[in-house]
Design a protein around this nucleic acid. Structure first.
Length: 271
DNA sequence: ATTGGAACCTGGTGGC
DNA sequence: TGCCACCAGGTTCCAA
């Protein structure tokens, strides 16, 4: 579900609401997620103070005082919500975090693709999960990315989804980014020319930043920690627009399956 | 080493 | 109304 912009919006929301608070209770309601939530989190995180909250790729990191920190990934349907009463229980609630000011944070995940784990040094996440470059620092790594691109035989859409290349792009934004940079999604990565590559890097940054400014994308059930929906879907140029006319050339937007994921593009505008 | 496809899990939708 | 196939903001495992 959530790609980088949605995770970023959630992280900012958490930062605004729980920074400086102390965890009085970390309770595992149902440990079954993609990976079982370790039981020791319940006492490791008890009485810890929230020092900072970060995002790396699609991962959120809650830094605590001490040496152990919380990492979360939301999978497809993971979401946080604040509540005042612990009796406010939803189906598929997995974790409850109670803070010293009485605020309660619940983690809910219908499909259980999300998960939590403990990390001692956040920087290790890059190695541990083999994460690539952060989308907002692409300029600093453009020569590395260019060299890397030149070695890839797979199509550019798949490469954008590869978290080991650039971390944070998901299925929606991959299609939107490629439309913005006028690149055909099935173009073989190594055949992309320098101009297109440069445009691609800037499109990635532009689209993701714009999505964040719109509060992310809500197609079905994404909402931020305050229950608010995202609005970037109103800005889609290709995603979910199959059979509709391209805003630029008036031809029909096409949808095809690529590696099991829907891919949307305009065959006139994207070469 | 890469890559494609299946698997993980639940719920919603559309067709018959 | 019921049943079934297919779809979904992701990642990982396995076999070719």
């Amino acid at each position: 579900m959530p790609e980088l912009p949605e995770v970023e919006v959630i992280v900012r929301g958490l930062r605004k609401n729980i920074l400086g608070l102390k965890i009085t209770e970390f309770e595992i309601i149902n440990k079954k997620l993609r990976y079982d939530t370790p039981k020791e989190m319940e006492y490791i995180f008890k009485n810890k103070t929230i020092k900072h909250i970060l995002r790396i790729g699609k991962y959120g990191i809650i830094l605590l005082n001490g040496k152990k920190h919380i990492v979360f990934h939301l999978g497809m349907t993971g979401k946080f919500r604040f509540t005042k009463k612990n009796t406010d229980v939803h189906k598929h609630d997995h974790i409850t975090i109670i803070f010293n000011n009485g605020i309660i944070l619940k983690y809910n995940d219908v499909r259980k693709f999300g998960y939590f784990f403990i990390i001692s040094n956040p920087i290790n996440l890059y190695k541990f999960k083999n994460l690539g470059i952060e989308p907002f620092y692409l300029d600093s790594y453009s020569s590395y990315l260019w060299e890397s691109l030149k070695k890839k035989n797979k199509d550019i859409k798949s490469l954008l989804l590869d978290q080991g290349f650039i971390a944070g792009i998901g299925n929606i934004y991959a299609s939107e980014i490629l439309f913005d940079s006028k690149i055909y999604p099935f173009k073989i990565s190594k055949k992309i020319n320098k101009n297109s590559f440069t445009k691609l890097l800037s499109s990635i940054e532009i689209i993701l930043k714009k999505a964040i400014s719109y509060g992310g994308t809500t197609i079905k059930d994404y909402q931020n920690i305050s229950g608010e929906l995202g609005y970037f879907q109103n800005n889609f140029k290709v995603y979910g627009r199959e059979g509709l006319t391209c805003y630029k050339c008036k031809n029909l937007i096409i949808k095809v399956k690529n590696k099991g994921r829907s891919t949307f593009y305009c065959k006139i505008c994207q070469k």
